[in-house]
Protein backbone atom coordinates (compact mmCIF):
# COMPACT_ATOMS: atom_id res chain seq x y z
CA UNK A 1 0.00 0.00 0.00
CA UNK A 2 1.12 3.51 -0.65
CA UNK A 3 2.74 5.76 1.88
CA UNK A 4 4.25 9.23 1.92
CA UNK A 5 7.98 9.86 1.74
CA UNK A 6 10.24 12.91 1.82
CA UNK A 7 13.22 13.30 -0.47
CA UNK A 8 16.07 15.70 -0.99
CA UNK A 9 16.70 16.53 -4.62
CA UNK A 10 19.83 17.82 -6.31
CA UNK A 11 18.68 18.95 -9.73
CA UNK A 12 20.72 20.24 -12.63
CA UNK A 13 19.58 23.75 -13.63
CA UNK A 14 20.88 25.42 -16.75
CA UNK A 15 19.68 28.24 -18.96
CA UNK A 16 20.32 28.48 -22.67
CA UNK A 17 23.85 29.64 -23.32
CA UNK A 18 24.85 29.62 -19.67
CA UNK A 19 26.80 27.27 -17.45
CA UNK A 20 24.70 24.97 -15.31
CA UNK A 21 24.77 24.07 -11.65
CA UNK A 22 23.05 21.76 -9.20
CA UNK A 23 20.33 23.19 -6.99
CA UNK A 24 18.77 21.63 -3.93
CA UNK A 25 15.06 21.09 -3.51
CA UNK A 26 12.87 19.21 -1.12
CA UNK A 27 10.13 16.87 -2.23
CA UNK A 28 7.85 16.38 0.72
CA UNK A 29 4.85 14.12 1.21
CA UNK A 30 5.38 12.19 -2.02
CA UNK A 31 3.01 9.28 -2.49
CA UNK A 32 4.92 6.09 -3.20
CA UNK A 33 2.39 5.20 -5.90
CA UNK A 34 3.28 8.36 -7.81
CA UNK A 35 5.60 8.20 -10.79
CA UNK A 36 8.94 9.97 -10.81
CA UNK A 37 7.63 12.66 -13.13
CA UNK A 38 4.56 13.17 -10.95
CA UNK A 39 6.98 13.75 -8.08
CA UNK A 40 8.67 16.43 -10.20
CA UNK A 41 5.22 17.92 -10.94
CA UNK A 42 4.61 18.28 -7.21
CA UNK A 43 8.01 19.93 -6.72
CA UNK A 44 7.36 22.26 -9.65
CA UNK A 45 4.01 23.36 -8.25
CA UNK A 46 5.78 24.35 -5.05
CA UNK A 47 8.58 26.13 -6.89
CA UNK A 48 6.03 28.07 -8.94
CA UNK A 49 4.00 29.18 -5.95
CA UNK A 50 7.23 30.14 -4.19
CA UNK A 51 8.00 32.54 -7.03
CA UNK A 52 10.67 30.43 -8.73
CA UNK A 53 10.94 28.94 -12.17
CA UNK A 54 9.91 25.30 -12.40
CA UNK A 55 12.38 22.63 -13.46
CA UNK A 56 12.16 22.09 -17.20
CA UNK A 57 12.03 18.43 -18.17
CA UNK A 58 10.81 16.73 -21.30
CA UNK A 59 7.83 14.41 -21.10
CA UNK A 60 4.70 13.62 -23.04
CA UNK A 61 2.96 10.25 -23.10
CA UNK A 62 3.94 9.20 -19.57
CA UNK A 63 3.40 5.59 -20.49
CA UNK A 64 6.89 4.75 -21.64
CA UNK A 65 6.51 4.85 -25.40
CA UNK A 66 7.02 8.37 -26.76
CA UNK A 67 10.68 8.52 -25.77
CA UNK A 68 10.50 12.13 -24.55
CA UNK A 69 11.48 11.66 -20.94
CA UNK A 70 14.81 10.62 -19.54
CA UNK A 71 17.36 11.91 -17.08
CA UNK A 72 20.14 10.44 -15.05
CA UNK A 73 18.75 9.60 -11.63
CA UNK A 74 21.42 8.81 -9.07
CA UNK A 75 23.83 8.10 -11.89
CA UNK A 76 21.52 5.78 -13.79
CA UNK A 77 19.73 6.52 -17.04
CA UNK A 78 15.97 6.48 -16.44
CA UNK A 79 16.71 5.52 -12.82
CA UNK A 80 17.42 2.27 -11.16
CA UNK A 81 15.04 -0.10 -12.91
CA UNK A 82 15.93 -2.09 -15.99
CA UNK A 83 13.61 -1.78 -18.96
CA UNK A 84 11.82 1.23 -17.54
CA UNK A 85 11.51 4.80 -18.76
CA UNK A 86 11.63 7.58 -16.21
CA UNK A 87 7.87 8.17 -16.46
CA UNK A 88 7.27 4.55 -15.51
CA UNK A 89 9.62 4.63 -12.55
CA UNK A 90 7.56 4.78 -9.39
CA UNK A 91 8.42 6.39 -6.10
CA UNK A 92 7.98 3.14 -4.19
CA UNK A 93 11.53 2.35 -5.27
CA UNK A 94 12.90 5.26 -3.22
CA UNK A 95 13.56 5.40 0.51
CA UNK A 96 12.25 8.07 2.82
CA UNK A 97 14.92 10.71 3.37
CA UNK A 98 16.97 9.64 0.37
CA UNK A 99 18.94 12.20 -1.64
CA UNK A 100 18.19 11.97 -5.34
CA UNK A 101 20.56 13.47 -7.90
CA UNK A 102 18.94 14.33 -11.23
CA UNK A 103 20.91 15.46 -14.24
CA UNK A 104 20.32 15.59 -17.98
CA UNK A 105 21.39 12.96 -20.50
CA UNK A 106 24.83 14.21 -21.43
CA UNK A 107 26.83 13.71 -24.60
CA UNK A 108 28.57 16.12 -26.90
CA UNK A 109 25.96 15.36 -29.54
CA UNK A 110 23.17 16.12 -27.01
CA UNK A 111 23.69 19.77 -26.00
CA UNK A 112 21.61 20.93 -23.03
CA UNK A 113 18.75 23.23 -24.02
CA UNK A 114 17.44 23.95 -20.57
CA UNK A 115 17.71 22.20 -17.21
CA UNK A 116 17.03 18.53 -17.94
CA UNK A 117 16.08 19.03 -21.60
CA UNK A 118 18.68 18.13 -24.19
CA UNK A 119 18.73 18.39 -27.97
CA UNK A 120 18.45 14.89 -29.44
CA UNK A 121 17.73 15.98 -33.01
CA UNK A 122 20.90 14.17 -34.11
CA UNK A 123 18.93 10.95 -33.84
CA UNK A 124 16.40 12.25 -36.36
CA UNK A 125 19.22 13.19 -38.68
CA UNK A 126 20.59 9.65 -38.53
CA UNK A 127 17.16 8.27 -39.45
CA UNK A 128 16.87 10.70 -42.34
CA UNK A 129 19.91 9.05 -43.94
CA UNK A 130 18.05 5.83 -44.57
CA UNK A 131 16.15 4.64 -41.52
CA UNK A 132 13.17 3.72 -43.69
CA UNK A 133 12.10 1.83 -46.77
CA UNK A 134 11.70 4.22 -49.70
CA UNK A 135 8.28 3.22 -50.87
CA UNK A 136 5.99 5.86 -52.26
CA UNK A 137 2.37 5.78 -51.23
CA UNK A 138 0.54 3.77 -53.83
CA UNK A 139 3.49 1.58 -54.82
CA UNK A 140 2.84 -1.26 -52.45
CA UNK A 141 2.01 -4.79 -53.59
CA UNK A 142 -0.73 -6.77 -51.83
CA UNK A 143 0.38 -7.28 -48.24
CA UNK A 144 0.27 -11.08 -48.29
CA UNK A 145 2.54 -11.39 -51.34
CA UNK A 146 5.70 -11.98 -49.35
CA UNK A 147 5.48 -14.38 -46.43
CA UNK A 148 8.02 -13.59 -43.75
CA UNK A 149 9.31 -16.11 -41.27
CA UNK A 150 7.74 -15.51 -37.90
CA UNK A 151 11.14 -15.57 -36.18
CA UNK A 152 12.45 -12.89 -38.52
CA UNK A 153 9.39 -10.71 -38.00
CA UNK A 154 9.77 -11.11 -34.25
CA UNK A 155 13.49 -10.32 -34.29
CA UNK A 156 12.78 -7.31 -36.46
CA UNK A 157 10.11 -6.19 -34.02
CA UNK A 158 12.56 -6.62 -31.14
CA UNK A 159 14.79 -4.07 -32.83
CA UNK A 160 11.97 -1.85 -34.03
CA UNK A 161 10.83 -1.19 -30.47
CA UNK A 162 13.41 1.56 -29.99
CA UNK A 163 11.73 4.70 -28.66
CA UNK A 164 14.59 7.06 -29.51
CA UNK A 165 14.99 8.31 -25.95
CA UNK A 166 18.77 8.54 -26.18
CA UNK A 167 19.49 6.63 -22.97
CA UNK A 168 21.96 4.46 -24.89
CA UNK A 169 23.95 7.52 -25.89
CA UNK A 170 23.93 8.91 -22.36
CA UNK A 171 24.89 5.58 -20.84
CA UNK A 172 27.71 4.96 -23.31
CA UNK A 173 31.08 6.01 -21.93
CA UNK A 174 31.83 7.25 -25.44
CA UNK A 175 28.55 8.97 -26.20
CA UNK A 176 27.99 6.62 -29.12
CA UNK A 177 24.68 6.15 -30.91
CA UNK A 178 25.51 2.64 -32.05
CA UNK A 179 22.59 0.87 -30.37
CA UNK A 180 20.13 3.40 -31.75
CA UNK A 181 21.51 3.12 -35.27
CA UNK A 182 21.88 -0.64 -35.00
CA UNK A 183 18.25 -1.06 -33.97
CA UNK A 184 16.98 0.68 -37.10
CA UNK A 185 19.46 -1.01 -39.42
CA UNK A 186 18.55 -4.38 -37.92
CA UNK A 187 14.81 -3.88 -38.25
CA UNK A 188 15.20 -3.59 -42.02
CA UNK A 189 18.08 -6.03 -42.41
CA UNK A 190 15.79 -8.71 -41.03
CA UNK A 191 12.93 -8.07 -43.43
CA UNK A 192 12.91 -8.55 -47.21
CA UNK A 193 11.37 -5.11 -47.67
CA UNK A 194 14.54 -3.57 -46.30
CA UNK A 195 16.96 -5.36 -48.59
CA UNK A 196 17.06 -3.23 -51.75
CA UNK A 197 18.42 -0.27 -49.77
CA UNK A 198 20.47 -2.06 -47.17
CA UNK A 199 23.84 -0.94 -48.54
CA UNK A 200 23.19 2.77 -48.71
CA UNK A 201 21.17 2.60 -45.50
CA UNK A 202 23.97 1.33 -43.30
CA UNK A 203 26.67 3.43 -44.94
CA UNK A 204 24.57 6.57 -44.83
CA UNK A 205 23.43 6.16 -41.25
CA UNK A 206 26.87 5.28 -39.89
CA UNK A 207 28.41 8.15 -41.79
CA UNK A 208 25.88 10.59 -40.35
CA UNK A 209 26.35 9.20 -36.87
CA UNK A 210 30.10 9.85 -37.12
CA UNK A 211 29.63 13.27 -38.64
CA UNK A 212 27.36 14.39 -35.80
CA UNK A 213 30.04 13.68 -33.22
CA UNK A 214 28.64 10.55 -31.62
CA UNK A 215 31.46 8.36 -30.29
CA UNK A 216 32.77 4.94 -31.27
CA UNK A 217 31.57 1.68 -29.87
CA UNK A 218 34.06 0.08 -27.51
CA UNK A 219 31.84 -2.94 -26.91
CA UNK A 220 31.14 -2.24 -23.28
CA UNK A 221 27.40 -2.90 -23.54
CA UNK A 222 26.30 -0.16 -21.14
CA UNK A 223 23.77 0.88 -23.78
CA UNK A 224 21.89 -2.39 -23.69
CA UNK A 225 21.51 -2.24 -19.92
CA UNK A 226 20.29 1.33 -20.16
CA UNK A 227 17.77 0.65 -22.94
CA UNK A 228 14.22 0.89 -21.59
CA UNK A 229 13.06 -1.41 -24.38
CA UNK A 230 15.73 -4.03 -23.82
CA UNK A 231 17.27 -3.74 -27.27
CA UNK A 232 20.10 -6.23 -27.44
CA UNK A 233 23.72 -5.59 -28.45
CA UNK A 234 23.42 -8.38 -30.98
CA UNK A 235 21.94 -5.62 -33.11
CA UNK A 236 25.28 -3.83 -32.92
CA UNK A 237 27.00 -7.00 -34.10
CA UNK A 238 24.52 -7.08 -36.96
CA UNK A 239 25.20 -3.42 -37.73
CA UNK A 240 28.92 -4.21 -37.91
CA UNK A 241 28.26 -7.10 -40.27
CA UNK A 242 25.97 -5.01 -42.43
CA UNK A 243 28.60 -2.32 -42.53
CA UNK A 244 31.39 -4.64 -43.60
CA UNK A 245 29.19 -6.24 -46.22
CA UNK A 246 28.06 -2.87 -47.52
CA UNK A 247 31.58 -1.46 -47.63
CA UNK A 248 32.78 -4.42 -49.67
CA UNK A 249 29.86 -4.45 -52.08
CA UNK A 250 28.95 -0.78 -52.44
CA UNK A 251 28.89 0.28 -56.08
CA UNK A 252 29.55 3.91 -55.26
Amino acid sequence: MSEKINLKLKVWRQNRGEAGRFEDYEANGIDTDASFLEMLDVVNEEITLGGGEPIAFEHDCREGICGCCGSLVNGKTHGSHERTTLCQLHMRHFKDGETVVIEPFRATAFPVIKDLIVDRSGLDQIIAEGGYVSVKTGNAPEASTTPIKKEMAEASMDAAQCIGCGACVAACPNGAAMLFTAAKVSQYALLPQGHPERTQRVLGMVNKMDELGFGNCSNEYECAVACPKGIDVKNIARLNREFVKASLTSEK
Binding site: A170, N174, A176, G215
Partner: peptide, 16 residues
Amino acid sequence: NAKAHDKRHTQKDSKE
Protein backbone atom coordinates in the same frame (compact mmCIF):
# COMPACT_ATOMS: atom_id res chain seq x y z
CA ASN B 1 35.37 9.19 -27.84
CA ALA B 2 36.71 11.75 -25.43
CA LYS B 3 35.38 14.46 -27.69
CA ALA B 4 32.00 12.75 -28.00
CA HIS B 5 31.62 12.72 -24.27
CA ASP B 6 33.50 15.72 -23.03
CA LYS B 7 30.69 16.82 -20.74
CA ARG B 8 30.76 14.04 -18.23
CA HIS B 9 27.90 13.18 -15.96
CA THR B 10 28.80 14.21 -12.43
CA GLN B 11 27.64 10.90 -11.15
CA LYS B 12 27.39 7.90 -13.39
CA ASP B 13 27.00 4.28 -12.48
CA SER B 14 28.36 1.67 -14.80
CA LYS B 15 26.42 -1.53 -14.73
CA GLU B 16 27.94 -3.58 -17.48
